[in-house]
Design a protein around this nucleic acid. Sequence first.
DNA 1: AAACTATTCAATATATTTATTGAATAGATG
DNA 2: CATCTATTCAATAAATATATTGAATAGTTT
Lengths: 222, 222
Amino acid sequence: MNKRDFKDKVYTELAKITKSMANPHRLEIIELLAQGEFSVEQIAEQTHLSIANASQHLQVLRVSQLVEIKRQGNFIFYRLSNTNVFKAWKALRELGVERIAAIDKVVKEFRKSKFDFETVTIDELIKKLESGKVTILDVRPDSEYKQGHIANSISIPIEKLSKRLKELPKRGEIIAYCRGPFCVYADEAVALLTKAGYKASRLEEGFPDWKLQELPIEISVN
Amino acid sequence: MNKRDFKDKVYTELAKITKSMANPHRLEIIELLAQGEFSVEQIAEQTHLSIANASQHLQVLRVSQLVEIKRQGNFIFYRLSNTNVFKAWKALRELGVERIAAIDKVVKEFRKSKFDFETVTIDELIKKLESGKVTILDVRPDSEYKQGHIANSISIPIEKLSKRLKELPKRGEIIAYCRGPFCVYADEAVALLTKAGYKASRLEEGFPDWKLQELPIEISVN
DNA sequence: AAACTATTCAATATATTTATTGAATAGATG
DNA sequence: CATCTATTCAATAAATATATTGAATAGTTT
């Protein structure tokens, strides 16, 4: 094999992997799977795809080895095959937000139009935890919380939050978090909490970002 | 704008960026531009593309804002618009090498068939620099060396190495480096040096990886 | 073993991506 | 101002990606 053939092969393979990520639905699936395992049906529902279409996209990800499966009862559960997959998604996400004004604009405008609150980064949250009284609130669905959450966080899925407000301490500050920067559960939570008189803000990033930094997490067993 | 429209817009924009990277030639161009600035002609030559084809690929990268241009005399020079572009490429590269056996296999087989030497990682090089006598050798073309190189490295472009061996100290160890893990200049250098009786090995990563870690670098002015 | 269920496959039409060719352009040089 | 040169554009044909539909499959449950 000569030098040129070698390069062609390597870049072609790398382009295949990149192509397998280069689709809006597949990126959304990757972000979802960064939370844990999901069946095809769940993935289809969360991403607003038909089952057959979701399955096709999952096959693409599977061929390029970005996801793995596990059979459980009648269901097949998909998960990311490695943290490197999330790392690549995160790098693309950060490149996009920083480079493409359109993305930053859409995110900012959507948030401002509906919520307009300050956000807190992971670094800022770490500092807050050292000094003050902070309650960390996980507003993702229960199954995602169980598969891994920030240590000492409280789980109240967003759709139950309005009825379970009394579980939260009135004193101190509440930081709500969810799947990632494009997930709006935490925004909705902050809106609700602020209206109810709490001092609340959202974590800019999501649980997978926290986990990637090897910050303390908990997993529910059974 | 509702939640779904918001998500669709964000993921569509991110997929556009990802698509703009998802081509073997464009990935190769990105890795090349991580070394510095190049004219369209130079890019076409380095990547074995026709000028028109290279130009088209560069337009794709330009539209998605991954590269920027600068006019100088008759030439237009392209460069990466931001370190986030290299970060994304690096993340994809590492995902590929770790996930896709085909890539790792091609790289290992190509090296073994022609060279079969040990490699040194950046972390290992840092340790070596602290303890022993190490000569760092940059075998990239002169123009790339000038645009940035590892501090205290010696520049001998690969095609001149055989005639300039006497410039290198016989005592101690020589670590050769070039553009990145898929660049073979450093492999060729190690083969040549070993044959000439030097103790030599190549740096696994390339100059951009060293720079990204904010390790000491030098830039030639004028 | 039959029935059931979640998932995958296959076929199709449409849209997008790619390399090639040759012409057009914009800016520099004489 | 005319000429030159590096780069870009436009048109094309071939290849690849996508969503939809309905049928097929593989594994579970009864």
